[in-house]
Design a protein around this nucleic acid. Structure first.
Lengths: 202, 202
DNA sequence: GCATTTCTGTATCGATCGATGCGGAACGAG
DNA sequence: CTCGTTCCGCATCGATCGATACAGAAATGC
């Protein structure tokens, strides 16, 4: 019984799956799940529908993988922000990351986790719920970070970490909505600075 | 020359246009512009596609009229909030109105002005821009109210009314996003209360 | 009564939606 | 080479998209 060491048999795929997923992610980010047609996706990916289905399953699975890529790419600032030494530093890093990511001139405006599928028809319900869970996960990670700050004495002991996390995520998603509508990054960053001038808010 | 007193000639329409528009507004609110199909709209309105086109023009015009109805209906709290005697009172009334409207158990969760068309495909660009302007108008009205508060001495003279308005609208839209995802009204209201405990934030 | 105007129900339009079938092309294994 | 496997290009699937054509029904004006 010998472990197979050789590569996979058959014709190798003729495109870079990572690059194709990156381009699909950008289309979903800009146009949302329902607004991104298969033709627009495969056109941007540079492959045929057949290749897309073979490599990614279907449109919904493609979106799920694109969201993972978004989380580890444009949205990776969150993980970095949670590593900041103070709760205030973490909150400021989160908001600065949101402003930067959602108003970057080179990329789509807004946040894929917000505008990807905020309200949909029936066929998009799965994706809509997925994004709701994605947003809730961000809030939870922030809450855990604030809980740790309370335990460390960085935040007053009477602080409610859940309330604080909800506050920061509310600002973050509000920034994302306005960035999607074309509000500039400078103005949003100035607003975020002002919001964090009183800390903690409770 | 006599003024025409009689009713319009021809067969009168057999449905209540106001009620039909109300129901269309609810469908757009819940599913967004792209997620609301003509079949879903006319089904909820209780009329045929022919009647809908005759009465409202097309899908985009129906959405525009539904948005007007939303502005004068579920979103009317904004006008009332601007009439509050103080800037803080206005901000608190706006946020309380948003929380109440976006988490009402009887109606769709979230805000039609946010989730109606935050990111769309090409055919929805007009509606997307319409909503961006709608949101910006809300921010402008709030800015004018804060400017008046500065003039009245209700807010410190060095206050930036635009920044303050951006802060409140950011909270409002962030609340709407989380309400769309199922976050409860009590938690959002508690967060809004905490956010306004420091006022003005700048 | 009749003519005119408007609304409604049915049936359907072309376009696009997401998703597949199929045959040939391109690889590794033997 | 031949064989087995996988991928790709093309054509196309049924369903649904938003939007209309058409004929009959229901009102007013004469």
């Amino acid at each position: 019984m010998q472990t197979r060491q050789s590569g996979p048999v058959g014709r190798p795929r003729g495109f870079d799956a990572d690059q194709a997923l990156e381009r699909a992610m950008l289309v979903f980010w800009e146009h949302g799940y329902e607004g991104a047609s298969l033709a627009a996706l495969t056109g941007a990916m540079g492959i045929s529908t057949t290749s897309m289905y073979a490599a990614f399953g279907n449109k919904e699975e493609l979106f799920r993988k694109a969201l993972e890529r978004y989380t580890e790419g444009p949205s990776a600032y969150l993980t970095g922000a949670l590593g900041q030494p103070t709760a205030l530093g973490a909150a400021a890093a989160v908001l600065a990351g949101v402003v930067r990511t959602t108003t970057r001139p080179a990329g789509p405006h807004g946040c894929m986790g917000v505008q990807g599928a905020l309200a949909t028809g029936d066929p998009g319900r799965g994706v809509r719920d997925l994004l709701a869970a994605w947003r809730d996960d961000g809030s939870s990670r922030l809450r855990e970070r604030f809980q740790q700050a309370v335990d460390d004495g960085d935040l007053p002991p009477e602080t409610d970490p859940g309330l604080l996390a909800r506050y920061v995520t509310t600002l973050a998603f509000g920034i994302a909505v306005q960035a999607a509508g074309g509000v500039g990054g400078d103005e949003l960053q100035a607003m975020a600075d002002a919001a964090l001038r009183n800390w903690p808010p409770a």
